[in-house]
């Protein structure tokens, strides 16, 4: 009986929150003529925001405040239609330069993830017992999942060798994605504020999921690439390069060698394009998820975002499996002895 009542209560509260959320959200507030939506319109910035040193942060925050002001003014004068798109595009970017160093909010997120991963895994693996405690059992289960995954693609011996690199990629991506959902109040609400148009607003977040920083997936893609090529060379020696520079047949005077050269070039390009595809797959998915969360919160705050969180949990898992799985598949292709 009590369980039923609790469920009913939760259902009623959710429904009420949904309706209230809809009313005070961006759509409802316009429909019902409210002054402004409960959650202010989010600004989407692809580059991560610098947090330290403070000077760089201040300059970005200052720029963003100015940007906001011009936006508001632009909105006010929207009838004029004189907004110059080119200028906007030029000014839109005011992040870090290519070589400029600052600790960004995505980096902080990655560090936080790393610390949590270290505590979790080392805590589970310290003094392993034959009869494990709960944490050890959980960590063992996770390790065995990845190990079995790797072994199923590469075979038991090679799977064991590839395990550390692949497992670290898998858990790093997964924990990064999930941490942003489990610690949603910290990720969405903690940051540095600024005075925008006489109103104190959150200008930069302290932490932001590392997956939304292009450099994070790029770093992992480079790790994956280097790892795969290393094992390719280790398995075939310098003969591994024959796959990409297939001049052998042509030098032996066979005209079909031309096709092999072309295929080799294709192989080389596809090998290099993997870095890009790895990078943008993860970056795109994580960024899109983050934007979706922010936009749903803006449109229908409170309860509607729960569904997006569920979706994001799934996306985080899928992306980490894809990243680890593709690394394993490329590795198995690189070490396999092809027969011509």
């Amino acid at each position: 009986m009590t369980t039923k009542r609790v469920l009913l209560l939760i259902g009623v509260v959710s429904a009420v929150l949904l309706i209230v959320g809809f009313v005070v959200g961006a759509v409802g507030s316009r429909m019902f003529g409210l002054e402004r939506p409960f959650v202010s319109q989010p600004g989407i910035h692809l580059p991560p925001d610098p947090v330290f040193p403070a000077a760089i942060r201040e300059s970005v925050v200052g720029y963003r405040v100015a940007e906001k002001k011009t936006e508001d003014q632009g909105e006010a004068k929207s009838d004029d239609g004189t907004a110059d798109g080119k200028d906007d595009a030029k000014e839109e970017h005011h992040g870090l330069g290519l070589m400029q160093f600052a600790v960004t909010n995505t980096m902080l997120s990655a560090w936080l993830t790393s610390i949590i991963m270290l505590v979790f895994f080392i805590g589970g693996a310290r003094n392993p017992k034959v009869i494990p405690n709960r944490l050890q059992a959980l960590v063992e289960m996770l390790f065995e999942l990845v190990l079995n995954f790797a072994s199923s693609i590469l075979g038991p011996e090679m799977g064991r060798r590839a395990f550390p690199v692949v497992a670290t990629i898998f858990f790093f991506v997964l924990f990064n994605a999930w941490l942003a959902i489990f610690l949603i109040p910290i990720y969405q609400a903690v940051g540095y504020g600024a005075n925008v148009g006489g109103e104190f607003k959150l200008a930069t977040h302290l932490v932001r999921p590392a997956g939304t920083d292009l450099n994070f997936p790029l770093a992992l893609a480079l790790v994956s690439f280097v790892f795969v090529e290393y094992w390719g060379f280790r398995a075939h020696g310098f003969g591994y390069l024959k796959k990409f520079f297939a001049f052998g047949d042509l030098l032996r005077g066979r005209p079909s060698g031309l096709i092999n050269i072309f295929v080799g070039i294709l192989e080389l390009v596809s090998e290099l394009v993997r870095i890009v595809s790895f990078t943008f797959r993860l970056f795109g998915n994580m960024t899109a998820g983050e934007i979706l969360v922010v936009m749903i919160t803006f449109l229908v705050p409170f309860i509607a975002t729960q569904f997006v969180f569920g979706l994001e949990l799934l996306v985080g898992l899928i992306q980490s499996v894809i990243f680890a799985g593709l690394t394993l598949v490329f590795l198995s292709v690189a070490v396999s002895h092809e027969e011509h």
Binding site: P48, H93, G95, L96, F101, N215
Partner: peptide
């Protein structure tokens, strides 16, 4: 850099 590419990061 519009996408946030940053070598130190």
């Amino acid at each position: 850099t519009e996408l946030g590419l940053n070598v130190p990061a």
